[in-house]
Amino acid sequence: MKYSFYPGCAFKSSAGYKESFEAVINELNLKFEEIEDWNCCGATVTKGVDDFKSLVLTGRIFAIAHRQGYSVIATGCNACYTTLRKAAKKLSEKDIWVKVKEALLLEELELPEKIEIKHLLEILADIPEKTLSKNRPSYINDISVASYYGCQLTHPFSNVGDAEKPGIMEDFLKKLGFQVTEHSAGTLCCGASLAVPHEDKCKILIDRILGEIKYRKADVVSTICPLCQFNLDSQNKGIPITYITQLTGLALGIAPSKLGFDKLLTSASGIIK
């Protein structure tokens, strides 16, 4: 299956997400095509400004994916995931759909009636174990990983299981051969963009998450969202905050130099052999 890919604004400059994503999909022969000339989804901001504006931003993304022949969009960012899923649900209301469709005609775009949004993690989680274990280096089995979902993957517009304790990332990490660190901070909020204007207040949230993860003695944290990764990593608490695609790459036997580890603020050299 080939997916339409929505990178979102933070993907390219994130700490090795893009590099590791490309290396992993290449290794696994997964096909993704980037949405042409995509725009910002509006994240958590535009919805607080105006409903119509937020639906034009998301509707344009859906319409371009549709024009490229896709009915499923994949993204690797939690905020994009929630924003797009929420919009897809809202656009199932006929009167709203008609209004947004009309606006998109200005660019000669056709708004589809239906579109499915998936997180990259869901696509990775569907890969059979035997495909993942072929070139696995033996040291992978000694690494204990704490899953950090953040808040926007699992909350209410989601499709990935229990909102407080989803389990999908832990199951995938086990399939990759890692040890899994059980902890209670997986879906706590990192403060997201409020870490800019209210840094001190959000630092408390991040300390709570990393305090629990370190107490449970994880070697490394696995994240699935550029903003979560950035907030946790920038506090520099001595534990590497990686992307799931970087860990997947290691388990697949891809050279670490191709996985963008040099872009992390807290070095992951201690876990790589």
């Binding site: 604004c9 390219k12 400059s13 994130s14 700490a15 000339d37 995509w38 725009n39 105006d50 119509f52 504006k53 034009v56 931003l57 344009r60 209004k99 009309e102 606006a103 998109l104 200005l106 660019e107 872009k263």
Partner: peptide, 23 residues
């Protein structure tokens, strides 16, 4: 090498702005 100095943009931001203002 993570600080983006050059801003990313769509091909026609003013057309998008026009669509946003339609409501």
């Amino acid at each position: 090498n993570r600080l983006e100095i050059i801003t990313q943009k769509t091909k026609n931001p003013s057309l998008l702005k026009k669509m946003l203002e339609m409501g």
